[in-house]
Design a protein around this nucleic acid. Structure first.
Lengths: 122, 122
DNA sequence: CGGGATCCAAAATGATACTG
DNA sequence: CAGTATCATTTTGGATCCCG
């Protein structure tokens, strides 16, 4: 069978493609946040208080380049920019929902684990 | 509704938990590779030729700490170490399969995109 | 408001040598 | 074979200032 001899040579490895698109530090979070509908930059920023504006911008640009989100600029003063999932981006929905589900189920486990690490320092 | 006011404060944000577990550079790849059954360190390494032994070790340790993989050491000479999914790790299977499916569908798109970037340099 | 540009600190990763 | 240790380098990320 030699199934073990298959090499994951980017970028032709399927899982690697997906990781490349949604694997960034904040990408899955951003995309999940966009699932219900368009969001302004400030909304995303407030949703992810630990991400700097700079990082957010960088991640949003990459998502845009990959064609999963759309950036709509309203010519107003002050400026207004809305981000939304493209039809292509919508195809990620099943993965994003599954990730949210799994995480919700195991938030407790993760919290307990972090507590143990904390207590080690004392 | 104010749904936009929800803040993703780690580690209690569901999606963030999932990203934390499978979001590492090689983690999704490793876990997917382990789906069919146990694998030796060398097999994983050959599957991911772009990952250094050092990185592989680090990622495997983290996956082990998160309880998604098990490390079985056989007291032999030369040493033999097998990695396998734990029952907990198996719960990630739906996500991993979906990620592989999605990637397979859009490998072409990604390749085309990379070609465009290449041609820009000329 | 939604960024871009720049500089710098810190973290992630690579390269290499060594080991039970 | 399956790592560990150390050092060099690259990549990320934060802080700050500026701008339309």
């Amino acid at each position: 069978m030699h199934k073990g001899d298959y090499q994951c040579q980017e970028p032709s490895c399927p899982t690697e493609v997906t990781v490349d698109v949604i694997g960034g530090k904040w990408k899955a979070l951003i995309l999940t946040f966009l699932l219900p509908g368009p969001r302004r930059f400030g909304e995303i920023s407030r949703f992810l208080p630990h991400a700097s504006k700079r990082m957010l911008t960088l991640q949003l640009r990459e998502l845009e380049e990959d064609g999963v989100i759309h950036r709509e600029i309203y010519k107003e003063v002050p400026p207004k920019v809305e981000y939304s999932l493209t039809p292509f981006g919508e195809t990620l929905k099943p993965i994003l929902l599954l990730m949210a589900d799994w995480g919700e189920k195991y938030v407790g486990k993760k919290l307990k684990q972090l507590k143990q690490v904390e207590s080690r320092t004392f």
